[in-house]
Amino acid sequence: MELDKVKLKSFQVLGWFSVIAGIVALALLNIAMLSGYDLPITSQLSFWITVILISGLISLSNRQSRSLGFWGLGIAVYLAFFIAVIFILGWIIVPFP
């Protein structure tokens, strides 16, 4: 019974971690873009996505933390889409090697 409670709690913690990590990554991305400086977040985005994705996927396996997992996954998918768009379009709009 106690183990179940611990399991449930840890799934919820992972779910919240996934969501909060996603929100922090988005906030840092906003700061980097609005300030115009090349902050470390832009080069570490793939690391952030991996962390959000893994914790989000784990929290999906429990019914209580599933909605949090979906939020985390949604943010991770958005960040991955953002990287892909910026990389491909950046290659088109900047003609220099």
Partner: peptide, 20 residues
């Protein structure tokens, strides 16, 4: 919270799409 944080990156992607 999330919608507010998506505004800038989405606008950035739209900017890139406009110049492409």
């Amino acid at each position: 919270i999330i919608v507010a944080l998506l505004i800038v990156p989405t606008s950035y992607m739209l900017t890139f799409a406009y110049y492409a």
